[in-house]
């Protein structure tokens, strides 16, 4: 009997170790089961929510599309350059992500402005430069009101909107959304909380490992 307990606990110990090694992030968002025919047999496959095609203009006035992010994991947030409330905190935290993965060809950051009227590419460039952000690993993106707001709410699941009574004229949530190389949502973190951003960076390492090990 004693031996049984012992072997059971050893087994448990082992399974705990192995599950840690192959740690994977959950896949978020809507999903549906689709029936497919493979080799004459009907199988059920899960189709996950993915980010659709998009096209925006960045801080260098260049066009940036979903293709730009192909083969990358990336972090998305929504902000505006004159935001007096949570944006400075968010970008103080995002700078940590930027510094950690600077130069890593597998990682990008996308900050969408929700102030399509004021935040021209020139304004975005000024903002990026003042924050010490160079190059385009961190894209600051501008698009029409509808394209940005739809992408935020339907696809990244972040609430944004205009509100005359809010400080700065816009309201938005402070989520940092993690997207994988297959354009699926893998995590959402409160960008105003330093510990959540630490969690994001830990999860980004897990996600990068996932692709490095080839187990999709």
């Amino acid at each position: 009997m004693k031996f049984l307990y012992l072997s059971a606990s050893v087994l448990l110990l082992f399974s705990a170790c192995s599950s840690k090694e192959s740690k994977k992030l959950p896949i978020l968002g809507n999903r549906e089961a689709v029936e497919k025919t493979v080799d004459g047999k009907t199988v059920v496959d899960t189709v996950y929510q993915t980010i659709p095609e998009f096209s925006f203009v960045n801080q260098d006035s260049n066009i940036v599309t979903d293709k730009t992010f192909e083969g990358k994991i990336y972090v998305v947030d929504f902000f505006f350059t004159t935001c007096p409330s949570i944006c400075p905190v968010m970008h103080r935290n995002m700078l940590k992500v930027y510094e950690k993965y600077k130069g890593n060809p597998d990682v990008m950051i996308a900050s969408h402005t929700i102030d399509y009227k004021h935040d021209t590419p020139a304004k975005l460039k000024e903002y990026a430069t003042k924050m010490g952000v160079e190059g385009t690993q961190w894209e600051f993106l501008r698009g029409s009101r509808d394209s940005v707001y739809t992408l935020a709410e339907k696809h990244y699941l972040v609430a944004v909107g205009e509100d005359k009574n809010a400080p700065g004229g816009y309201v938005h949530q402070g989520w940092f959304v993690l997207v994988d190389k297959d354009k699926r949502l893998r995590g959402a973190y409160d960008g105003t909380q330093a510990d959540q951003v630490d969690k994001l960076m830990a999860d980004m390492d897990v996600l990068l490992d996932e692709y490095r090990n080839g187990n999709k």
Binding site: P84, P88, V89, R92, T129, M131, G132
Partner: peptide, 13 residues
């Protein structure tokens, strides 16, 4: 939010 808990502000902004 803007000036940070240590009063450091945010880079050049």
């Amino acid at each position: 939010n803007c000036h940070a808990s240590d009063g450091a502000g945010l880079r050049g902004l």
